[in-house]
């Protein structure tokens, strides 16, 4: 079971890395804070997933993020949360 847990984690990382490319067109991978588009690096994973899910249900406002999140599965969201959560903001 330990091996499978590691396998899933690795698969999740590959998925998160893949999906992250869509995010980095607008959100800087450095986590640099700029006015207009919030940094998404280094967030707690559950918070990251909850915010994405809220966009996906169109509860949270924002045309771009609603359209992005609408097509993400829960697994996609947690993979992204893990990927960006593991990064540290660079000044």
């Amino acid at each position: 079971m330990f091996w499978w847990g590691r396998a899933e984690a690795a698969g999740n990382e590959v998925l998160g890395r893949h999906l992250s490319a869509e995010c980095t067109a607008c959100h800087q991978l450095s986590g640099k804070s700029v006015t207009g588009i919030p940094p998404i690096v280094g967030w707690p994973e559950d918070q990251f997933t909850a915010v994405l899910a809220s966009y996906g249900r169109k509860e949270r406002g924002g045309q771009v993020m609603q359209a992005i999140a609408a097509k993400l599965s829960h697994g996609d969201m947690t993979a992204l949360a893990a990927y960006f959560g593991a990064l540290s903001p660079k000044p």
């Binding site: 607008c26 800087q28 006015t35 207009g36």
Partner: peptide
Amino acid sequence: RQTQAENMAWYDAISAD
């Protein structure tokens, strides 16, 4: 105003990407 702030932030982010 918010849309313009997005526009400016997008340019910086996509240039970095």
